[in-house]
Amino acid sequence: EGEAHRVLFGFVPETKEELQVMPGNIVFVLKKGNDNWATVMFNGQKGLVPCNYLEPVELR
Rank of each mutant, 00 (worst) to 15 (best):
E1M: 12
E1I: 12
E1Q: 08
E1S: 10
E1L: 10
G2E: 07
G2M: 11
G2A: 08
G2C: 04
E3C: 11
E3T: 12
E3H: 09
A4P: 14
A4I: 07
A4E: 07
A4D: 03
A4V: 07
H5C: 04
H5T: 03
H5K: 00
R6C: 05
R6E: 05
R6V: 09
R6K: 11
R6Q: 09
R6N: 04
R6P: 01
R6A: 04
R6T: 07
R6I: 09
R6Y: 08
V7R: 01
V7M: 04
V7E: 02
V7A: 01
V7S: 01
V7W: 00
V7T: 03
L8W: 00
L8Q: 06
L8N: 05
L8T: 10
L8Y: 00
F9P: 14
G10Q: 14
G10N: 12
G10A: 15
G10R: 14
F11C: 06
F11E: 02
F11R: 13
V12N: 14
V12F: 12
V12Q: 14
V12H: 14
P13C: 05
P13Y: 01
P13A: 09
P13R: 04
E14P: 08
E14Q: 14
T15P: 05
T15I: 07
T15Y: 08
T15E: 06
T15D: 12
K16E: 13
K16V: 09
K16C: 09
K16F: 08
K16S: 13
K16P: 14
K16Y: 06
E17P: 08
E17R: 10
E17I: 07
L19T: 01
L19N: 02
L19P: 06
Q20R: 14
Q20N: 09
Q20L: 11
Q20A: 14
Q20M: 11
Q20V: 07
Q20P: 09
Q20C: 10
V21R: 03
V21G: 02
V21S: 01
V21M: 01
M22V: 13
M22L: 12
M22P: 09
M22R: 15
P23V: 05
P23M: 02
P23A: 10
G24M: 01
G24H: 04
G24C: 01
G24N: 05
G24I: 02
N25A: 10
N25I: 02
N25V: 05
N25T: 11
N25P: 03
I26H: 04
I26L: 09
I26D: 02
I26T: 08
I26W: 01
I26Q: 07
I26R: 05
I26N: 02
I26F: 05
V27K: 00
V27N: 00
V27M: 03
V27Q: 03
V27P: 01
V27T: 00
F28E: 14
F28R: 15
V29L: 11
V29S: 02
V29G: 02
V29W: 01
V29M: 09
L30I: 10
L30D: 07
L30S: 06
L30R: 06
L30H: 08
L30C: 06
L30F: 03
L30E: 09
K31T: 10
K31N: 13
K31M: 09
K32Q: 08
K32E: 03
K32A: 05
K32R: 11
K32Y: 07
K32G: 05
G33P: 08
G33W: 11
N34W: 08
N34F: 12
N34I: 14
N34V: 13
N34A: 14
N34L: 13
D35K: 07
D35S: 09
D35I: 01
N36F: 05
N36I: 03
W37N: 12
W37D: 06
W37H: 07
W37L: 12
W37S: 09
A38C: 07
A38E: 00
A38L: 02
A38I: 03
A38D: 01
T39A: 05
T39D: 08
T39R: 09
T39H: 13
T39V: 09
T39K: 08
V40S: 03
V40D: 05
V40E: 00
V40H: 01
V40L: 01
V40T: 02
M41A: 14
M41H: 11
M41D: 11
M41K: 12
F42P: 02
F42N: 03
F42D: 05
F42C: 10
F42H: 14
F42G: 05
N43D: 09
N43Y: 05
G44I: 00
G44Y: 01
G44T: 05
G44P: 00
G44M: 05
G44E: 07
G44S: 04
Q45F: 08
Q45N: 11
Q45G: 08
Q45D: 15
Q45S: 12
Q45R: 15
Q45A: 10
K46G: 04
K46W: 05
K46I: 12
K46N: 07
K46V: 13
G47E: 02
G47K: 03
G47D: 03
G47I: 10
L48V: 06
L48Q: 07
V49H: 00
V49A: 02
V49W: 05
V49Y: 04
V49K: 04
V49M: 12
V49C: 04
V49G: 02
V49P: 00
P50K: 08
P50R: 06
P50T: 02
C51A: 12
C51Y: 15
C51V: 15
N52D: 14
N52C: 12
N52K: 13
Y53S: 06
Y53R: 09
Y53G: 01
Y53C: 12
Y53V: 12
L54V: 04
L54R: 03
L54P: 01
L54W: 01
L54K: 01
E55V: 09
E55M: 07
E55H: 03
E55Y: 07
E55W: 05
P56L: 03
P56A: 10
P56W: 01
P56G: 04
P56S: 08
V57S: 04
V57L: 13
V57T: 08
V57I: 11
V57F: 08
E58N: 15
E58D: 13
E58L: 10
E58R: 13
E58Q: 13
L59F: 12
L59T: 15
L59G: 15
L59C: 15
R60A: 14
R60N: 08
R60L: 12
R60I: 13
R60S: 15
R60H: 15
